[in-house]
């Protein structure tokens, strides 16, 4: 089976620092892959490269067989890679519903002209987008708060809204950057269920960066461990759990702190 996402030899240098090197991963559809590693290992850099926020010094990225080279970030999103951010980036002064509807941007195609004159194409598409957005909010139990400003949501809800917004771009691969950060254990286990749910419901592959090992071990089918910009181990959760190199990387860091 051909992988949906195929990353080959990805690497980037910042100044003289090799932030990421030799990064290879193939992700199959409906797979949930975990990306772990100590702080500064280059996890978020992987996401930034996958979404072309940075352009790689070398290596290739293919989504469903097509290269993303030379595309700008918004084109990569349209192409099918959506993401969330470690330090939540919502449209804070905009309602929850509008946050999601903003991400439906490319699902609609009416022109500025028909928007100004409120032509049928505008009415029809807006109505449909609104309905879809509300359904998406249902998945995350956010419908009740559709009219609230995103910035005034509680923290956990903000994280969920960010995932909802990413899903609204209709991705094939969803990148979650520390989705459980700042959540309490019950919220985290709820989130685990939701992540599995959306994988099944939307039929997508998910790559997630997370420090919460319960979550990672609980839902990831495969785990990659990064340290100093290199993959030092990969495998099933139980293999990773007992891998001496991984333990060394984490313990070494803990000793250093």
């Amino acid at each position: 089976m051909t992988p949906i996402l195929d990353v080959c030899n990805l690497g980037i240098k910042f100044g003289g620092l090799q932030a990421l090197d030799d990064f290879n991963v193939q992700v199959a559809n409906r797979e949930i892959v975990g990306l772990i590693g100590p702080n500064g290992a280059g996890k978020t850099t992987v996401f930034n490269l996958l979404t072309n926020v940075y352009s790689p010094s070398r290596g290739t990225i293919h989504l469903t067989g097509k290269s993303t080279k030379g595309k700008s970030t918004h084109e990569v999103t349209q192409f099918g890679i959506a993401r969330t951010f470690q330090n939540i980036r919502l449209f804070k002064n905009v309602s929850v519903l509008e946050n999601v509807m903003t991400a439906f941007h490319n699902a609609m195609d009416y022109s500025m002209f028909s928007a100004i004159l409120r032509l049928p194409s505008y009415r029809k598409q807006e109505k449909a987008a609104r309905k879809l957005a509300l359904e998406l909010l249902d998945v995350f139990d956010l419908r009740e708060m559709a009219d609230t400003l995103a910035g005034s949501l509680p923290y956990g809800a903000q994280r969920k809204l960010e995932i909802a917004r990413a899903l609204a771009t209709n991705p094939k691969v969803l990148l979650l950057d520390e989705p459980a950060a700042g959540m309490n254990p019950s919220e985290t286990s709820e989130l685990m269920m939701t992540i599995k749910d959306i994988r099944d419901k939307f039929d997508i592959a998910i790559i997630l960066i997370e420090h919460d090992m319960n979550l990672v071990m609980g839902i990831c089918e495969r785990i990659l461990v990064l340290n100093y910009g290199l993959i030092i181990a990969q495998g099933k959760p139980e293999e990773i759990k007992n891998n001496p190199i991984v333990i060394e990387a984490y313990l070494g860091q803990q000793r250093g702190e």
Binding site: T77, A82, V94, E98, M101, Y110, A115, R165, A166, T169
Partner: peptide
């Protein structure tokens, strides 16, 4: 009327957070 459309939402999303707007598929 322009602001109350997908185009207006795109414009406002750029004000709110350029990086998130781009990640939502909007061309800055």
């Amino acid at each position: 009327t322009l602001l109350k459309s997908r185009h207006g939402r795109a414009v406002i999303s750029i004000r709110e957070d350029e990086i998130a707007a781009e990640a939502s598929g909007i061309s800055l």
